[in-house]
């Protein structure tokens, strides 16, 4: 569904349908915090690792992180359910309007929050304005730090670069990045379906994190199709969205215990 952004009316009225298109549900009751999604995301999306010092200083590039807090004190202490936090692909994203160069526009076709690396000039306003704090910035050219390469006949080669996913841009320094809901996979699936003259089927493809998740805690799909798995999970009573009160219209639903 396309929305005419020129509609005159209350500001809320021009926001997208609260539903969205692609969405995700994360079952915190079965998420074991095993970090497989984090690793899978890094492998799929050419995310650079930053090393010990920068990682400890809040510069890690994880597009998805698993949060855990504590409740109570020993021996009644309890770790709160693991909470994978990733870009919520808000329908009403606070990060989008603040970019001066349209580097993080909204895609009408996918109803996702895009990050166009090649337009980004690095003002980092989007990251400040993201209430979920899920954007990561390329503070340096981590991929080409000389210590990561080998000198072969006088040239620096980086064996790790062989692993780069050709479908995903390798970001250079000074560029913001974030979870894209594996938009490259969405496109591939959509185009395959189109060439076969059909719609994308539920479960035909999924994001890297959902694909890896050993507990199947992450489900990805069309939230606007009532019969899809993600849509059914999302509409469970235990479904909850983060910081919904900010009217960001997040597309990720967290399923709580109980």
């Amino acid at each position: 569904m396309t929305v005419d952004l020129n509609l005159v009316g209350a500001k809320g009225a021009i926001a997208e349908a609260a539903e969205g298109k692609w969405g995700m549900s994360i079952d915190q009751d079965i998420c074991t915090g095993c970090q497989a999604c984090v690793a899978a995301c890094a492998m799929e999306n050419n995310i650079s690792f930053v090393g010990e010092e920068d990682a400890g200083y809040g510069r890690s590039q994880h597009w998805i992180r698993i949060e855990r807090f504590w409740e109570g004190a020993y021996p009644e202490v309890k770790a709160t359910p693991f909470q994978p936090m990733l870009c919520q692909q808000c329908g009403h994203a606070p990060c989008e309007p603040v970019c001066p160069v349209f580097a993080t526009p909204h895609s009408e076709a996918e109803q996702l929050n895009l990050q166009v690396y090649n337009r980004c000039v690095g003002t980092r306003y989007c990251a400040n304005n993201c209430p979920y704090q899920v954007r990561s910035f390329n503070w340096r050219d981590y991929h080409t730090i000389p210590e990561r390469g080998n000198m072969v006949n006088g040239t620096l080669v980086f064996p790790l670069h062989n692993q780069f996913n050709p479908d995903v841009t390798v970001r250079r320094r000074g560029v913001m990045e974030k979870c894209t809901f594996c938009i490259q996979r969405i496109h591939k699936a959509q185009d395959k379906a189109k060439s076969e003259g059909r719609e994308v089927e539920d479960g035909e493809f999924t994001t890297a994190c959902a694909q890896a998740c050993p507990a199947n805690a992450i489900t990805f799909g069309r939230v606007d199709h009532p019969e899809s798995l993600v849509s059914q999970l999302t509409h469970q009573k235990r479904g909850e969205k983060h910081l919904e009160e900010l009217n960001t219209l997040p597309r990720v639903t967290y399923l709580k215990e109980g």
Binding site: C34, A36, V38, A39, A42, M43, P159, Q163, A212, P214
Partner: peptide, 22 residues
């Protein structure tokens, strides 16, 4: 055994293949 799933170490197996320290 894994029915399409992997753990984090399985995901990172390529970092062994392309490890600069082989």
């Amino acid at each position: 055994v894994n029915l399409g799933k992997t753990c984090a170490r399985g995901q990172a197996t390529l970092q062994g293949l392309y490890n600069p320290d082989r």
